[in-house]
Design a protein around this nucleic acid. Structure first.
Lengths: 226, 226
DNA sequence: CTCATACTTCGACGCTAATCGAACCGTCCG
DNA sequence: CGGACGGTTCGATTAGCGTCGAAGTATGAG
C-alpha cells in the first residue's frame, strides 16, 4: 500500500523497551558484551540474546567476537543519528507525562551513565578538561593532552595502566539532559570510581542519581575542575 | 534501568505498519483527513481512528477540526526529521533483503503515490514545470505560475475548477527512490487521471507500478515535459 | 425532520511477540 | 581432561495489540 523502504520494521526494532535500552547504551559508539547489554536492558540473558539476534538481522548492530565474548556495537553513525532524532522527539513530547519532580532535578545534575558520571557536573568537567588542554578533542575522538597523565596522576589515577585495556581511555557520550557530551571510557569510569571511593558522593537507592555532599563537591571541583 | 525520555514509546508508535504509512503520507507537511489516512494505510476507518488516537496521545500529530472533517498533520518539523532519519536507516539497511529485481526498476521509473504519479518521470515533470515557470516554488509551497492555467487548459485540465475544492492544488511529495520532490495535490491527481484516461499507461496488477506504452510515453512527454 | 456522511467508541477475535526455565554449544582456566 | 563461564537455542506460557463488525455521536444537506 505504501512505497519505499520498510520504515516500520526498523522503528519496531527500536520500539521495544529492552531493545531501546540496549541501543541507547551503545550510543556512545562503544561496544558492549551480551551480558552487559542484558543487565542494561533489565532482562535475562536468554531474552537479551533473542533481542540481539533481531537487532542484528535488522542491520542495526554489528558484532565482533573475541574469545568467548561477543561485543555488540551500533552498525554505524547513521543508526546513532536516528536514535538521536528519536530521543529528540521523545524529549520534546515526553515531558507531558513525566513531570519533572525534585528527583529529576538531581538526575539532571549528576547521575551514573553505565559506569561513568553524567549530568551537568560531568559536562562541565569535560569542558574544563578540553579548555585546559588536559584532554584534546580530535574530531569525534578524545585524546589525552600532554598535561593529561601528570594531571590525573596527581589525584591517583594512572592513565598509563589504561593503555593495556582493550577499552578506549576517553570517549564522548551524549548527555540527554544537557544535550552536550560528557566523558565516558576508562578514564570516565576511573573518575567515577574515585568519586565513590572518596565518598564525595553516594548513589541514591533504586536510582541512577548521584548526590554530592557539600564537602565532596568542593573536593571534586578542586580535583577535576581546577 | 535507563535514563532519559521514553524513546521506545515513540519508536513503537512508528513501528506499526499502518501508523508508519500514515506518518509517511504526512511527511510532505500537508494535512489529511482521517478517511484519507485510512485509505493510505490500507485499514478500515475504525482501525485508523484507533491509530490516530494513539499518535495524537503520543504527540506525533496535531489536529485541526473543520466541520465534520478532521485534518491530521505532523506535530512539527522535528517529527518529520525523525521520520527522515528512520527512512535513511531503513533504506541503507533494507536492500539486503529485497533485492532489486525488474519489478523494482519499473517502480522507480513510475508508480502511483496515493492518487498521483511518482518516480523518475514524476520528478522530471515537476522539474520541468518549475524550470518553465508553469509552477512556482514558494518556499515549501508550490503555486501556479502565470502561464500555468492556460498551459494545463491546453491539455484539458481546468485548474480553475480546483479552486472550489478544499484540497490544495499543488503539493510537493518526497520521492523515496529519487530523493527529490514530485507533484501531488489536486493537479497531480488530475494529471494521473489523464494519463490513465488517455491510456498512455496502465497499472500493473497487484502493484503500484505504472507502465507506459511507447506511444503513451511520447504523448506524456509532449503534453507535460515540452 | 430525515437522511447521508465523517468519525469515534465498544466488544470480541486472533495472532504475534516478549518473557523465562532449561538444556545445549563454545571458550577459558587449572 | 573437568569445571566454570559466556552465549545461544528450544519450548511453553502469557499478555498485549492490531483488526474488524456493529453501534453510537456529530455535522451537514435537502
Amino acid at each position: 500500500m505504501r512505497d519505499g523502504p520498510d520504515i516500520s520494521r526498523i522503528a519496531n526494532l527500536v520500539g521495544d523497551p529492552a531493545r531501546a535500552n540496549m541501543l541507547t547504551a551503545l550510543m556512545d559508539g562503544g561496544a558492549l558484551t551480551a551480558s552487559e547489554l542484558a543487565l542494561e536492558a533489565g532482562v535475562t540473558a536468554q531474552t537479551a540474546s533473542s533481542h540481539l539476534g533481531k537487532l542484528m538481522e535488522g542491520g542495526l548492530l554489528s558484532l565482533a567476537a573475541q574469545g568467548r565474548h561477543r561485543y555488540y556495537s551500533l552498525a554505524g553513525p547513521q543508526v546513532a543519528a536516528m536514535l538521536e532524532s528519536i530521543i529528540g522527539v521523545a524529549a520534546a513530547v515526553g515531558p507531558q507525562r513525566t513531570r519533572p519532580g525534585p528527583r529529576d532535578a538531581v538526575m539532571r545534575e549528576a547521575r551514573i551513565c553505565y559506569d561513568h558520571l553524567a549530568g551537568e557536573h560531568a559536562v562541565a568537567m569535560l569542558d574544563g578538561f578540553l579548555a585546559r588542554g588536559v584532554l584534546i578533542a580530535d574530531g569525534d575522538e578524545i585524546r589525552l593532552g600532554k598535561s593529561g597523565p601528570p594531571h590525573f596522576a596527581a589525584v591517583g589515577i594512572d592513565t598509563e595502566a589504561f593503555r593495556k585495556q582493550r577499552r578506549p581511555i576517553c570517549r564522548a557520550c551524549l548527555d540527554w539532559s544537557v544535550r552536550r557530551s560528557h566523558l565516558a571510557g576508562a578514564l570516565g569510569a576511573a573518575i567515577l570510581d574515585k568519586i565513590i571511593a572518596e565518598k564525595w558522593a553516594r548513589r541514591e537507592a533504586e536510582s541512577r542519581a548521584i548526590v554530592f555532599s557539600p564537602k565532596g563537591k568542593m573536593a571534586f571541583e578542586k580535583a577535576f575542575l581546577a
